[in-house]
Write a protein that binds this DNA or RNA. Structure first.
Lengths: 208, 208
DNA sequence: TTTAAAACAGGACGATTGACCTGTTAGGAG
DNA sequence: CTCCTAACAGGTCAATCGTCCTGTTTTAAA
């Protein structure tokens, strides 16, 4: 109505909406989250919401492409480049995630997996967008295993299927942790995964 | 209204409702499935539905306790008793599931995992019921590994955490298969899991 | 300064949700 | 047979869903 100090900030409003939606989608699920709830939490009017995201699907797509994709890249792909080999990176990632989960008290699960589980059956376009993220994740891990094989750090491994296995272990352990509200599954899976990778790797950390 | 050949069949009606709900919950998700949809698919009136299940939560609980629990027991726990050791059972189970999925054309995912993912954050009672199923599954697998250890078939394994790993691999691979609509993740995970278990087991199938 | 388009406000829309109501019928106990 | 309760029919309820509308204000280009 009356023009109190309103300032147009399309990028900021859009960012607030996507951030709020990302949180809600990951914690409660895409279907269980209403547009009204997002509008209220993000302090955005219906008009602004409709302007930026005419439909819920568009918001879901934006969350997947702008946030879920980034989350996977940041927590799983980038650490691969900063570690000497795949096992070191994987153990570091598991450790970080367990460390972040422990004090929080509740386990909300893997963003990518959470989105994929309740969106995949209903929206082919969103499913494909999530599929791309899975593919990038698998490819990055696979490339790291391949590099370890080429550099002689690892032997007798099949990079592609081993990468799939690692993703499955992480996704499954996170799903269990969410269902049981206990990080135990992540802790146990981390140890087992480290042990089985150690059999294929000759570590240089200690003399041997 | 007019008393056309109606017959009271409380057990049958209840079974039809639970069966229909189980299918819908697994394929579309608990939240995404409406009570009206279940009523129509099961050909049940609103009055009958309200009589048997006063609230959606009660139906969800019944599906978990009567169907999901049974599905896990039948596909994962009972085969353990019919196989010589855990690796044989696990490979058989993966093979059966992949074989059933291949001609179907679509992957709807693991019933237990599907239910857990979208129900856990919203209903503590249903989450605990699912938690019990996870616990029974983990315990059965753990006991089989323990038996293999005692009988000398396996060595250098930790039954409890290894059982958790197997469940994580299966759940995660199934989640990937559902998200990507491709059984590839299950096939690859099966092979990797068989290979890593073989390292801990001395097989008696072939001479050696 | 004029102007057109983007950005935003606030509310209303029909459809659908889960829950529940009153009334009627079936079927076993007495 | 009578009677009573579980079983069932059919419809209604407020609440909430996602979407869209009209109108106003900001903003940058001309």
């Amino acid at each position: 109505m009356i023009g109190n100090g309103r300032t147009n900030d399309p990028q900021g409003v859009r960012r607030r909406i996507v951030d709020t939606a990302y949180d809600a989608f990951v914690k409660q699920g895409y279907i269980a989250t209403g547009m009204l709830e997002i509008r209220e939490k993000a302090s955005v009017s219906g008009g602004a919401m409709a302007h930026h995201f005419p439909a819920k699907r568009a918001l879901g797509l934006a969350v997947i492409r702008d946030r879920v994709s980034h989350a996977v890249r940041q927590t799983w792909i980038e650490p691969l480049d900063r570690c000497v080999d795949a096992p070191a990176a994987i153990d570091l990632i598991f450790g970080d995630i367990i460390g972040e989960l422990a004090p929080k008290g509740s386990v909300s699960g893997c963003p990518l997996n959470n989105m994929a589980m309740d969106v995949s059956p209903h929206d082919p376009e969103m499913r494909l967008a999530l599929d791309d993220i899975f593919a990038a994740w698998q490819e990055a891990l696979s490339a790291k295993f391949q590099a370890d094989l080429a550099s002689g750090r690892a032997s007798n491994i099949q990079p592609s299927s081993l990468a799939t296995l690692v993703i499955a272990i992480y996704s499954g352990a996170m799903a269990m942790a969410k269902a049981r509200q206990d990080v135990g599954a992540l802790v146990e899976s981390r140890a087992e995964l480290a042990a089985l990778l150690a059999l294929k790797y000759r570590r240089v950390t200690s003399a041997g």
